[in-house]
Amino acid sequence: MKKSQIIAIAVGIVAIGILYSLPRVVVDNDEGQNQVATSEEEVAETAPSHMGAIDESTADELATLRGKLSAADNKENFVTFADAISEIYSELGKYDSAAHYQELALDKSNNIERQERTGNAYYEAYTFALNEQKISFLAEKTRKYLNQVLDKDPSRLDLKTKVAMTYVSSSNPMHGITMLREVLEADASNEDALFNMGVLSMQSGQYKRAAERFEELIKFHPSNLQGQFYLAVSYYESKQNNKAKKQFEQVKSMTTDPQVLSSVDSYLERL
């Protein structure tokens, strides 16, 4: 799960409400069984989204670069212009468009570095997508390119975690959970896997299980503010009020961010 998406969740007072708006997934529960709450959606390829306000100078710059891209007379120039366009779209927060141009560059220069860049770009877009068809499309693109890297280097647990997360909103969510478990079997302290397993447990309402995941996370990564915050919320939701109060105070000691502090105070007032 993308860090900027998680930060947005963590600092909001409506953090738990946002969690429930995330894609339904399969998670491991306390009884050792699995709960499935997902439906198959028709896969439809969607074009890159260029919606939203772009100032005139940026629009002109993009038009110029696209013209140069079309006229590029060699692979090196084509890749240079495609990268420049991708970077602009990324800065504008139009991540699907940024990924599209990374893919165009990859078509001209196919190597493991390019495969990873393209896969990561599509994963970035995936984490911000809301439309079900676009989520499915971007998830497939992410898997296509990151799996190419993993085929060559299976030790890249960071990429395996990203691929795993694209499955949890698919018609085969259990595969994603299995992959996250495999990551933790290979590296019990893996920060991304522990965090994501905790978030998925929260989403399904398994707050005691979530607390266990976040306890493991902060044991190995005590500076992970989002994990510290979610541990407190998990304690709160599982009625472990003393632990929740202590944990929220711990979060307050770790940051001066007014949004985080406001969210923490909101929970403390309810304890």
Rank of each mutant, 00 (worst) to 15 (best):
G17K: 13
S39V: 14
A105L: 04
G205W: 11
S262P: 00
Y145T: 00
E124N: 13
A72S: 09
D73I: 14
T178H: 05
R143H: 02
A99S: 04
A99H: 02
N242V: 15
K252T: 01
I218P: 02
Y20I: 14
I88G: 11
E103P: 01
T127L: 06
M51F: 08
T166M: 05
A59Y: 07
V183W: 11
F128L: 14
D192C: 03
K208W: 12
L22R: 12
Q33Y: 15
A105W: 03
P173V: 04
E140S: 08
I16S: 10
A98Y: 10
K246Q: 07
M197V: 09
R114K: 02
I218F: 00
I54S: 06
H100W: 10
D192L: 10
S234Y: 11
S169Y: 10
E42A: 12
E76N: 04
I135V: 07
I6L: 14
Y236I: 10
L184M: 05
S109E: 01
H221W: 04
M179F: 02
S234A: 14
D257M: 03
Y230T: 05
A53F: 15
K246R: 07
T46P: 00
I6S: 07
K3A: 14
E40K: 09
E132V: 11
V251N: 01
D28G: 13
N242S: 15
I54V: 12
F229T: 12
D83I: 05
K252W: 03
Y167A: 04
E249M: 09
N74P: 02
T38D: 11
M165C: 11
P48N: 05
D96E: 06
Q102W: 06
P154V: 04
A164D: 10
V260G: 03
Q148L: 11
D96A: 07
K162R: 13
G93C: 13
S234G: 09
L146Q: 03
S109K: 06
L180E: 09
K246V: 02
Y236T: 08
Q247K: 08
R143E: 08
T255K: 09
F137G: 00
K94G: 04
A105R: 03
R270M: 07
Q5S: 14
A72C: 03
I218Y: 00
K246N: 08
A59R: 08
Y101R: 00
I54T: 10
D96M: 04
T255Q: 03
A186Q: 09
Y145Q: 01
L106S: 00
S86W: 14
L130H: 14
N224D: 04
L261Q: 06
K108G: 00
S171Y: 14
H175E: 12
V183S: 08
F220K: 02
L217V: 04
A71E: 10
A47S: 11
A105T: 00
L200F: 13
N131C: 05
V264L: 09
P258R: 02
T38S: 13
I16H: 06
V233M: 10
S262H: 04
E215G: 09
V168A: 05
Q5C: 12
N77I: 08
S136Y: 08
F195T: 08
D153M: 04
Q228F: 01
T256V: 10
N242A: 15
M197G: 05
S266D: 07
D151Q: 07
K239Q: 15
N34E: 13
K246G: 04
T58C: 07
R209C: 09
V79P: 03
